[in-house]
C-alpha cells in the first residue's frame, strides 16, 4: 500500500443535536482494498460511511477523495461523484419497488444519461455475474432478501465505481446468503479494482476484508495499522 490513499478522512466531528456521532474519526482507504468498519451499535459507523461518501458533511475535519475536498464541492458535484465514482449497498429496501430488477440495476447508468438499451444490456451482464440473471424481469417484491441484495450489489457495481460503500449489506440475511453476497461483492470488487468500505458488526462478514477499522464512541482505531 504505497500508493496515495484514494479516500482520506481526517479528524471528523459530526453531531446530531447534542449527540456526537463522530468525535475525531480518521481513516484512509487505498485503491482496491476492502476495509471493514466495525464497532458496536450507535458507535457512529453509518455516520462515518455517510461522511466518506459525501452524503453527510462533517461539522469539522476534511474528507478528500482523489485529493479533492468533498466539503468544497457543491451538492450537484457530490451527487455526480456519487453517481460515477461510488456505489452503494444498504441493508435493505434500496430497490425501487415499481421497477424490475433489470431496470433497478440499469438505473445508475440511466441517471448518467446512458441510453436505455445500452444501460439494460450492461445491467443484464451484471445480473449474470451476480448469478441472478433469472430475476431480470421480476420486481423486487417478488424476490427473496438474498436475491434482492445481490441485485443491489449488481446495481452498486454497474457503473464500475472506484469505491463501493456497503452498510450492513448482509444485515438482513441468513449466514449462507450473507456469505454468498459477500463472496460475490468482494470478488466483483476485486475484479473491477474497486475499493470497498464495509460497515458490519459481523466478524464473519468482516473476514472478507483486508483490514478493519474499529469505531468506538465516534473515534476510530485502526488496529491493523497500529500493530
Amino acid at each position: 500500500m504505497t500508493a496515495a490513499p484514494l479516500l482520506e478522512a481526517d479528524d471528523l466531528h459530526r453531531s446530531f443535536g447534542a449527540t456526537p456521532a463522530l468525535d475525531g474519526a480518521t481513516m484512509r482507504v487505498w485503491p482496491g482494498e476492502v476495509v471493514a468498519v466495525m464497532g458496536s451499535s450507535g458507535s457512529g459507523k453509518s455516520t462515518l460511511l455517510h461522511c466518506l461518501a459525501g452524503i453527510l458533511l462533517p461539522d469539522s475535519g476534511v474528507v478528500t477523495y482523489g485529493g479533492r475536498d468533498l466539503s468544497a464541492m457543491s451538492e450537484t458535484e457530490r451527487s455526480a461523484l456519487r453517481r460515477t465514482d461510488f456505489g452503494f449497498v444498504f441493508q435493505f429496501g434500496q430497490l425501487v419497488p415499481e421497477l424490475t430488477c433489470l431496470e433497478n440495476v440499469a438505473l445508475p447508468l440511466r441517471l448518467e444519461r446512458i441510453r436505455r438499451g445500452e444501460a439494460e444490456r450492461r445491467a443484464a451482464e451484471w445480473l449474470e455475474r451476480l448469478e441472478v440473471a433469472d430475476l431480470a424481469r421480476k420486481r423486487p417484491g417478488e424476490t427473496s432478501g438474498g436475491q434482492a441484495q445481490r441485485v443491489a450489489v449488481a446495481r452498486a457495481l454497474v457503473t464500475r465505481p472506484r469505491v463501493v460503500f456497503a452498510d450492513e449489506p448482509t444485515g438482513a440475511l441468513d449466514s449462507l446468503n450473507g456469505e454468498k453476497v459477500m463472496r460475490l461483492l468482494t470478488q466483483a470488487a476485486r475484479e473491477t479494482a474497486a475499493a470497498v468500505v464495509l460497515v458490519t458488526h459481523e466478524a464473519r462478514v468482516a473476514g472478507y476484508s483486508d483490514r478493519e477499522v474499529v469505531v468506538r464512541d465516534g473515534r476510530t482505531r485502526d488496529l491493523t495499522r497500529a500493530s
Binding site: I55, S79, T84, G93, Q94
Partner: peptide
C-alpha cells in the same frame, strides 16, 4: 422517504 434518500445517496439528481 427511505427510498428517496437512498436514490439521492446514489447520486440521483433532485431534478429527476
Amino acid at each position: 422517504r427511505r427510498l428517496l434518500a437512498m436514490l439521492v445517496a446514489v447520486g440521483t439528481r433532485r431534478g429527476t
